[in-house]
């Protein structure tokens, strides 16, 4: 029985790259996102590339009504059900400074929305004794920076959540992989100045797949971000607070 993947935020380019690889190995795909018309095209792409099946379902992190239907669909799948989470939003920090009301949206998109789905999926994974959760966070969650600390805080919360979920699911035969991409060449980062060492979504997807094979818990992609963030984390707070990295 092939594995079925629920992909939250499936129209992001990172998700698309991973979905193509999962399709090529014949997995089943349930693509969840807001733009259903466009997701249909991704589902078609997955079918042409060899997916056992590919369908779409609505997911809006800010609309709890979606969660129930996604979980119902997950429960109805035979065999192993896994999930990959690519959602999140990153309005410029200056916009958040001007309108603190944006904070809830960022936290919902990047943390609580997907966590609602994963929280409902956990019992299914436990009951079946198998299943993987891939949670895509960000290096921005490793330390709060002046440039995007609300987004960073939401991603940090999500990473902590994933760590706890790993602790829980690991006891029941499940697995959780936390992915921390550095700068990636996506629609979110297109046109943003000051990016360096930018990786392609394909590279991220390749890294995710090999981490899955090795049952890794937390990865940085590309790997050198582990070193970069290691150094950034070591900077004493009294120095860090004066930096704008």
């Amino acid at each position: 029985m092939a594995e079925t993947w629920i992909v939250l935020g499936a129209s992001s380019s990172m998700a698309r790259a991973l979905v193509r690889r999962l399709a090529a190995r014949g997995d089943g795909l349930i693509l969840a996102g807001r733009d259903l018309g466009d997701l249909e095209r991704d589902a078609a792409d997955a079918r042409v590339r060899g997916a056992a099946f590919a369908e779409t379902i609505r997911f809006d992190a800010r609309d709890l009504a979606c969660v129930a239907s996604i979980l119902a669909r997950a429960g109805a799948c035979e065999g192993t059900v896994s999930a990959a989470v690519f959602v999140g939003s990153m309005p410029p920090q200056a916009e958040i400074d001007a309108d603190p009301g944006l904070i809830e949206g960022v936290v919902t998109d990047s943390f609580t929305g997907p966590a609602r789905v994963l929280q409902g999926l956990a019992p299914i994974i436990e009951a079946r004794g198998a299943g993987t959760v891939i949670g895509v966070g960000s290096v921005a969650g490793d330390r709060g920076r002046i440039g995007n600390y609300v987004y960073g805080a939401a991603k940090a919360a999500f990473a902590t959540y994933l760590s706890g979920l790993r602790n829980r699911l690991g006891r029941a035969g499940g697995h959780v992989l936390t992915v921390k991409p550095g700068f990636t060449d996506t629609a979110m980062t297109w046109g943003i100045e000051g990016m360096f060492l930018v990786a392609s979504p394909d590279k991220v997807a390749t890294d995710i797949l090999s981490a899955l094979e090795k049952q890794r818990n937390v990865i940085y992609t590309p790997f050198f971000w582990m070193g970069i963030m290691g150094i950034i984390r070591l900077i004493p707070e009294r120095v860090f607070k004066k930096l704008s990295v």
Binding site: R16, D35, A187
Partner: peptide
């Protein structure tokens, strides 16, 4: 621009 979806 480098759209990834039809709407974009």
């Amino acid at each position: 621009a480098r759209p990834e979806r039809v709407s974009a």
